[in-house]
Design a protein around this nucleic acid. Structure first.
Length: 457
RNA sequence: GCCGCGGUCGCCCAGCCCGGUAGGGCGUCGGCCUGCUAAGCCGAUGGGGUUAAUCCCCGCGCGGGUUCAAAUCCCGCCCGCGGCGCCA
């Protein structure tokens, strides 16, 4: 059964190298990988011959008698001794080889921009951005520079940043107390903001389930072998919390447990695609983030997330990657938040992805587009590691499925976007109309507007 | 957490006590046959290496051990079922 990366490594290593170069990684890992794989194959062949001999002798022993038996026993023992050493070597190389294979990043699709973070390009814009007059230049830097002319309106007051409005104007969040009891990047949220959190999640769940996605509430912790199969090492180190004294790790998104839903299983081609919308909390260490976004709830250790996930036929994964980002866009269009979609540059791609779209919402308080959604096509990278096979009925051909994911809503981030985009000059915050349906049933939930502390009864 | 039973090819099960090439049924795929029905017959249906054909190795929840040889015996772990305890 072919894993695309191994196949490329053996048949067209130069192509694999090109891909590695695009990721701004050293191509010598390919040479090393190739050498290791060749060595493994060579030794395996030798050992198989020795095993064969040993098996032959061994099977004769059962029928042999007396002297003949004694002789064969000696012979078998001798072969066994030789094998022991050879197998030791094989095991070492095999372990190295498997580790090496698992560390290889996915290839990069041709339409991914080449370069580092700066090479990431917007591919489309939507909505009318509210641009504070002094941010006009930087708005143009993020739009017209790339040849786009999205709609905008100039506002002449400076919107309060999401952190300030949450904590000081609305007074509906407390990151100081949370910092005291849990540490930085934790938060308490109260009343209207909590309702908003739930409404956003329900809205995304409603939208995606009506498109036929299966709703799933997955486990929030996974074993090491599983979570390690779904993410790359840097992600693991930067994001994942471990439960002490247990082989359990907190998920950073529902993508992880949903990808594991078919761990070690076979899926027939006529069952695909399988589409899921998962809800879960997301736990993230943010170890690599340094001091970035320390204020407020933009970058936190814990938030709620609705996630889209698709298992698809290999030939369909590109199509479904587009579908996923379109779904995310529909969600943000419904919320009336102006955004752009960017095609992430190769140097910034995670090892699992062949291509990644981010959806970034314009933040009037910061004068920047900020990431709200991230959607990756992982092709067979996760499926190979999780051993999720595809069986094509015609001819009973075996292959690996492709997996794809994209954010639906990440609660805290969407809240920051609403706080800045729906802010009125008096500090109140309007609620996107599309959420009303999910607030209506609750007596105490806000319906149209969240009032600042000093105007609340 | 404790006691008992169990985990074998996509699914169900045999083999385990008594160590010697992993078998049946169902499903699926392909072929054959038949003027007849969800029929019958034959074959294929885990992973890997290798060749001109082929052949070989590995695989019985996971990891060790004993042995020339382990699904089978021994040890540890994981999961499931039943019972007891505890508890939202």
């Amino acid at each position: 059964m072919p894993w695309s990366i191994l196949e490329l490594l053996r048949n067209d290593p130069d192509k694999l190298k090109e891909s590695i170069k695009k990721r701004q990684m050293d191509t010598k890992i390919i040479d090393e990988a190739l050498e290791l794989d060749n060595k493994w194959r060579r030794i395996l062949t030798e050992i198989n011959e020795m095993r064969h001999k040993h098996n032959q002798v061994s099977s004769l022993i059962a029928k042999a008698k007396n002297d003949e038996k004694k002789k064969l026993l000696e012979e078998a023992k001798e072969l066994r001794n030789q094998l022991e050493n050879a197998e030791k070597e094989l095991n070492e190389i095999e372990e190295k080889r498997d580790k090496m294979l698992r560390n290889l990043p996915n290839i990069v699709l041709d339409d991914v921009p080449i370069g580092g973070e700066e090479a990431t390009v917007p591919i489309r814009f939507w909505g009318k951005a509210k641009v504070y007059k002094e941010y006009l230049d930087q708005f143009k830097e993020q739009t017209e520079k790339y040849g786009f002319k999205p709609d905008y309106e100039i506002i002449d007051y400076k919107p309060v940043g999401h952190a300030d409005i949450l904590e000081n104007v609305l007074k509906l969040g407390d990151t100081l107390k949370a910092g005291e009891v849990s540490g930085s990047r934790f938060y308490y949220l109260f009343d209207d903001i909590v309702w908003l959190d739930f409404a956003l999640l329900l809205y995304a769940i409603d939208k995606l389930t009506s498109k036929g996605y299966t709703l799933v509430l997955p486990p929030y912790m996974l074993r090491y072998d599983i979570i390690n199969s779904v993410i790359d090492l840097p992600t693991f180190q930067d994001a994942i919390y471990k439960i002490d004294n247990e082989d359990l790790y907190m998920i950073a998104t529902a993508e992880h447990p949903i990808a594991a839903l078919y761990y070690n299983e076979e899926i027939y081609d006529d069952e695909l695609p399988k589409k899921y919308v998962g809800f879960s909390p997301a736990f993230r260490k943010e170890a690599g983030a340094g001091n970035r976004d320390l204020k407020g709830i933009f970058r936190v250790h814990q938030f709620h997330k609705v996630e889209q996930f698709i298992y698809s036929l290999p030939e369909d994964s590109k199509k479904y990657h587009e579908e996923l980002i379109k779904n995310s866009e529909e969600i943000f269009q419904g919320l009336g938040l102006p955004y752009r979609v960017v095609n992430i540059a190769a140097g910034d791609l995670g090892a699992c992805a062949v291509k990644k779209y981010d959806l970034e919402v314009w933040m009037p308080g910061q004068g920047k587009y900020r990431e709200m959604v991230s959607g990756s096509n992982c092709t067979d990278w996760q499926a190979y590691r999780l051993n999720i096979r595809l069986i094509r009925r015609k001819g009973m051909i075996r292959d690996y499925v492709h997996t794809l994911n994209s954010t639906g809503i990440a609660s805290t981030r969407a809240i920051t976007a609403i706080l800045e985009n729906y802010q009125e000059p008096d500090g109140s915050v309007l609620i996107p109309k599309v959420l009303r349906k999910y607030l209506e049933p609750f007596e105490k939930a806000p319906k149209d507007i969240i009032m600042p502390r000093n105007k609340r009864p």
